[in-house]
Nucleic acid binder design. Structure first.
Lengths: 349, 349
DNA sequence: CCACAAATATACAGCGCTGGAAAGATGGTT
DNA sequence: AACCATCTTTCCAGCGCTGTATATTTGTGG
C-alpha cells in the first residue's frame, strides 16, 4: 500500500523528478517523446500527486473553510450548496465547519484551527462579538456573513435587514393586518440579526401609526420549528390576539403555520404569516409561505470576490457589501387584503 | 504577515524545535519551568502550528471527505450534520464534496482528488457503478453509503430498502388502500436504490394479492419536489386512479402532497401518502407526513466504525452493514383505516 | 562520592513536492 | 567551426513539522 511518489515515476521513466512534475503540471517545454514516456510511467504506476506535500511546497492550499451554525438549517444548506458550487467554479474545495452556535467552537474555527489549512474562511457568526473576531483573525483571509455589527477590519456581506423587515411589515399592513406579531427573539443570538429585523418591524408599525405592543414580540428558546410552534401556541393560550406574524426565519414560520393550523386558525384569513430566507420549503407548505428572499447568489459571489481579493494580498480596511432582497409573495400573506372573516370575529375562534 | 514558525518560537525561548513541539503536544516529560518559558514565547509570538506541514511529517491528515449528491437535499443535509458531529467527536474534520450526481465528479472524488488529502472517504454514489468504484479506489479507505449493489472489496452501509418499501406498502394496504402508486422512478439513478424500493413495493402488493399495474409506477425527471408535483399532476390528468402513494423520498412526497392538494384531493382521505427519509419537514407538512425512517445515527456510526478500521489498517474484503429502519406514522397515512369517502366515490372527484 | 538508571533536551534526517539556478542540447548564424 | 540564443532537463535547497537516535542532566543507592 506504499504510495507511489514522484521519484518512483522519475526512476521508472529514467528522468528527473522535476521533469515528471512538469508533465503533471502540463508545463509547455517538455519534449513530446519524453512527455509520453513519463505519462506512461505515471499510468503504469498509478501515480497521484500528494496534495499535502504540494501544499507545503507552494504555500497554497486551494481550500476554503465555511463555518456555519448548522448544516441542516435549510437556509445554510442552500447557502452551502451555492458556496460549494462557486468554490468549484473558482478552483477551491470547501471544508465545512459546523459551529452549532457554540462560542467556543466559533472561536476555535478562527483561532488555531485554520492554521495553514485553508486559504480563506467564510464565516457566519452567531455568538461571537465582532471585536473578538477581529482579534482572533490570525492573518487568514476572512469574510463574514450575516448581521454582525460592521467590523472595522473585516470584510462583510449582508442584506439590509432593517429594510427587509420593513418591507415585510408594510406588506402585512397593506393587506389589512393591524395586530402584527414578531417571532422570535432569541436570547442567545447576540449578533444583532434578530434585533435588526425587530427594529425594521417596529419601524414599519410606527410609520403606519400602529402602536407598538410588547406583548406581540414573541420569544423562542432556540432556532427550530418546534420552538416556533411552542411560542405561537403559548401566545394563543395566553390570549394574545394577532392577525399577522413576521417571522425571523422560515423555520419559525413553518412552526407558526403548524401552530395556527392546530389551533384552528386559518392562514391567511385569520393570521397572515411572513417567513424569512425563502428556503425551498416555502413553496411547499400549505398554504405556501410568503418569505423575505435574500439574494443568495449575490451573497455568495460577493463573499468570494472579497475573499479572493484578500487572498491576492489586499490588506485594507473592511469592506461591507449589502446585497439585495425581495419579498416572495405567496399564499400565507397575499398582496390583496383577502380576509374572509372580519377581524372582530377573531376572538370568537 | 510572515507566519511564525516553530523555529522562531524555539529561538525566542532558547530551546530546540523539538522541545517546543513537545510543549505544543503536551508531551509529559518537559520540565515545568521550560514548559512555561516556551508557552510564553508561543503566546508572545502568537504561534499556530502549520497543519499542512504536520500532515506531511506524520502522514495523517485528520480529515475525511464526505461525497454526497446534494448538500441541500434535506436527507443529505441532515446526514451531513450528523457526520460532522461524529467526525468532531472522533477528531476528524470534514471536507464536503457535492457531486450533483454527475458521474465525472463522482469519479474525480475517488480518483486523483483525494490523493493524500484525507484519511478516508464516505461516499454516497448515485451514478457510478460499483465496479468502477472498486477500480478507482486508490488505497484511501472508503465507505459507501446508500443502495449500490454489494461491492466485493468496499465497505458499505445501507438500510434494507426492499423490506422498508414492503413495510410502507403493507401499511397502506392495511389502512385500506388498493390502488397504490409508486413515485418515482428516475432514469439517471442507476445505483438501484430506487429499484430496490420499487421491488419491495411490488412484493407488498403481490403478497396481498393485488395485481401490479404498470400505470401506477410513476416516473420523475429529477430528484426534486417540483418533479414530484409534476409527476402526480400528470398522472391525475391522464386519468390514473390511485388511493395511496409510496414515495421514493420525502421531497417527492412533499411534491405529491402539494399536487394532491392543488387538484382538490384530500390526504389521507382520498389518497394516503408515505414518504421516505423522515426528514425534518415530514413533521411540518400539512397533513404531516408518514415516512420511512432510516436510523441515521446508526448509519453514521457504522460508517465511521468501518472507516476507522480501514484507516487502522484493515485490508480484508468489504463488509456490509444493514442498519435498521422504521415507519414513522403521521397524518398522511395513519394506521387505522380512516377513509372518509368510500373508495368508489373516488372517480367522482 | 561514584556508578548507573531515569528523566529531559537536542540534532537532524526525512515527509513529497516545487521553484529557481544551472547545466546540457539543439539549431541557426556568421 | 566557433558562437549565441533558445529550448530542455537536471540539481538541490527549502516548505514546517515530527520521529528517532543521541546527548545531557538529574536523581538514587551503595
Amino acid at each position: 500500500m506504499a504510495r507511489v511518489r514522484l521519484i518512483d515515476v522519475a526512476e521508472l521513466a529514467g528522468v528527473s523528478m522535476k521533469t515528471v512534475s512538469n508533465v503533471v503540471h502540463d508545463y509547455p517545454h517538455v519534449a513530446p517523446a519524453l512527455r509520453e514516456k513519463v505519462q506512461a510511467a505515471i499510468d503504469q504506476l498509478g501515480y497521484r500527486p500528494n496534495l499535502t506535500a504540494r501544499r507545503l511546497a507552494t504555500g497554497k492550499t486551494g481550500m476554503i473553510a465555511l463555518a456555519i451554525p448548522e448544516i441542516d438549517h435549510p437556509y445554510f444548506s442552500e447557502l452551502s450548496r451555492q458556496i460549494a458550487e462557486e468554490a468549484t467554479r473558482r478552483g477551491y474545495r470547501v471544508i465545512i465547519e459546523q459551529t452549532l452556535s457554540d462560542p467556543v467552537t466559533e472561536r476555535a474555527v478562527l483561532n488555531d484551527r485554520e492554521a495553514g489549512l485553508v486559504d480563506g474562511v467564510i464565516f457566519h457568526p452567531v455568538r461571537m462579538e465582532t471585536l473578538d473576531i477581529a482579534k482572533l483573525d490570525a492573518g487568514t483571509p476572512l469574510v463574514l456573513l450575516g448581521e454582525a455589527a460592521m467590523p472595522v477590519m473585516t470584510d462583510h456581506v449582508m442584506i439590509d435587514n432593517v429594510s427587509a423587515a420593513l418591507d415585510a411589515t408594510r406588506h402585512l399592513l397593506a393587506s389589512g393586518c393591524r395586530r402584527i406579531a414578531f417571532l422570535g427573539v432569541i436570547a442567545a443570538d447576540i449578533t444583532g440579526s434578530t434585533s435588526q429585523r425587530l427594529f425594521g418591524y417596529q419601524q414599519g408599525l410606527l410609520e403606519a401609526g400602529v402602536q407598538l405592543n410588547p406583548e406581540l414580540v414573541l420569544t423562542a428558546s432556540e432556532f427550530t420549528a418546534e420552538a416556533g410552534v411552542h411560542s405561537i401556541t403559548e401566545a394563543i393560550d395566553r390570549g394574545v390576539r394577532f392577525d399577522g406574524v413576521v417571522c425571523r426565519d422560515d423555520r419559525f414560520a413553518i412552526g407558526a403555520l403548524k401552530a395556527l393550523h392546530d389551533s384552528g386558525r386559518s392562514v391567511p384569513e385569520d393570521v397572515a404569516v411572513v417567513g424569512w430566507d425563502n428556503t425551498f420549503m416555502a413553496a411547499y407548505t400549505s398554504p405556501t409561505l410568503t418569505s423575505v428572499a435574500p439574494e443568495k447568489t449575490a451573497i455568495v459571489v460577493a463573499a468570494f470576490n472579497l475573499l479572493e481579493e484578500r487572498i491576492a494580498g489586499y490588506r485594507g480596511v473592511g469592506r461591507h457589501v449589502i446585497v439585495g432582497h425581495s419579498l416572495e409573495v405567496r399564499e400565507s400573506a397575499p398582496l390583496a387584503p383577502s380576509r374572509l372573516r372580519s377581524r372582530t370575529d377573531f376572538t370568537a375562534l
